[in-house]
Design a protein around this nucleic acid. Sequence first.
DNA 1: TTGAAAGCGCTAACAT
DNA 2: ATGTTAGCGCTTTCAA
Lengths: 360, 360
Amino acid sequence: MVRGMNRQAPTLEDVAREAGVSRATVSRVINGVRNVDPSIQDLVRRAIERTGYTPNRAARSLVTRRSGTVALVVSGAGDSSADGVPAGGVSAQDQNAFTARVFADPFFGRVVSGVIGHLRPRCMHPVLMFAESAEARAEVLSYLRQGSADGALVVSTHPEDPLPALLAAEGLPAVLFARPARPVALSYVDLDHRDGGRQAADHLLARGCRRIVTVAGPLDVRASQNRLDGFRDAMARQGRPYVPIAEGGFTLASGMSAMAGLLAEHPDLDGVFAANDLMAQGVCQMLREHGRRIPEDVAVVGFDDSTIAVTCSPQLTTVRQPVEDMAAEMARLLEEHIRGVRTEPTSVVFDPELIVRDSA
Amino acid sequence: MVRGMNRQAPTLEDVAREAGVSRATVSRVINGVRNVDPSIQDLVRRAIERTGYTPNRAARSLVTRRSGTVALVVSGAGDSSADGVPAGGVSAQDQNAFTARVFADPFFGRVVSGVIGHLRPRCMHPVLMFAESAEARAEVLSYLRQGSADGALVVSTHPEDPLPALLAAEGLPAVLFARPARPVALSYVDLDHRDGGRQAADHLLARGCRRIVTVAGPLDVRASQNRLDGFRDAMARQGRPYVPIAEGGFTLASGMSAMAGLLAEHPDLDGVFAANDLMAQGVCQMLREHGRRIPEDVAVVGFDDSTIAVTCSPQLTTVRQPVEDMAAEMARLLEEHIRGVRTEPTSVVFDPELIVRDSA
DNA sequence: TTGAAAGCGCTAACAT
DNA sequence: ATGTTAGCGCTTTCAA
């Protein structure tokens, strides 16, 4: 069915003529509306086949007021207004750095995967947007207002991200990954991070570790804080109120240097909880550089169960965050908001699960 | 300008009435067509402000026949037709695995960054699509035919990827990352991989390395093959016709095991060229586990200059592939094809550049 | 069950 | 320089 690029694409009209019926009937067949004579359905379907017809999305959107597209936005904090930004906005450098940071963690890939998994069977598609500056955020809003996308799935990389509030204020359908720092009338999907921290502590303790330390995530991020809280609570409940802690930045390098510091102050440590797998990998590397065997000398527990948990050696024992499922749930909620079958903001909190492998 | 979600969005008509002019005039102002009296322009702009008007994208697309969207497709090989696929197509597992693999390398993030960098100022947006199965590929084609996207930017992860040929056959605007295995009438952007391999060899040699080995990429990938060829040629030209080689899979783990093998057979090696940074990182880790210092005992050169090149320790000396620039160029070419100002398939080949850091 | 016709909101050719 | 008008391709009442 190779068609030259010159010929106009066939329209409903063409199919209707070919089938000897009206536009309306063809439309009904395509959209699966009942009340169409089976024999006519066949007729139409054959005509569609013959003409190589594909519905025009713009025309359909115009009348249905649905684009079949959702914005998948990765949102930073950036300048919250047009303050002090050199004309022209954010530099390519900054933008690259931001993007690089986002993609450095396998986390985002898992989000994409989960989102696409839900969207694809419904003929919906994600358009990727970065909102690391006030300018970029305005663009996201305008994109949604234009009806270019029916709603937004937003993953904030910073607790002070102003985008959720802006979205809510305009009444635009949106679902967040993680509960926003300040209350916003939007649905979100989250993980019970506290419980994850607790599971890590319990496992290390049950394993017989006595001198446990932790490499926390950035403490201005609620998720990090909660993982740490849960971890500490569990430790305290078992009679260990004090746990040495180093703060990392969720990166491999920060995990390494945090571990180096911890090792210097507590050379006899025998257990580490790292608040994500990337840092856990850094922790393992640093431990090995110091001649410690894992898990014989030091047990390491990570968080996330990202792909690196298994590519890392030894394979990481880690607290699984079901990111794909969470992302799919975001898409599901958003779809319901868009369809209007769900109107109130909702929250769905997932439970983490300890995955035991070789590192602890 | 908070608007309840109940009120209909204002249309051109509303603005026109508010400003006391015709729809056409408002449209002209919005689209920056000359021949509009400055005073009226102001009038209109104020009316737009007051009404909070935003143009409806679907309506605009319908008449301009432009969606302002391009498909950014990551394409695998997968089943090339409906052979032996269990009903329902590819499993969620497979899809996740595919996505995970794609995002494990910082490469894709750089592509996204470069693409967005070019698209954003032009008010265009990328929609993310995966085409790892025949089904998914059909969907990409249909998406483009529907006019949902004006063209496709495709990054193939496999040399036998059938998508480019399908795109070309339908005359759909598309630009590829890397020259396709078999000739296809599409524009592409590529790197002079041979020259990159050459630069790596020359640097290692100039440094005084005598027992050089290499960890190649998957040899069914043209880029890997070319990097290797260039590397070997340069070595041969300097009187070293034989270079021990191990084939990796562009992953960290494969870099480690390739290095382990090489080390076992050539314990006296003093220089390594790894065909990408991820493998180079694996190489470094393995070398360190074997007590080799980098670069004192063994010099290591990577390829790509991805973010890990600098997060890795020691920082990687590597052959830079300007992925962001290449991706932006893809976007530029595609845009020209879409606008019709470029009709013939074109190729743009970038030059790699050796970035000297600490590892060699 | 099918068809006729009225738009959806916009741009562009044409008329003024 | 501005307004009038005719669609773009589709869905969806409303009649038949």
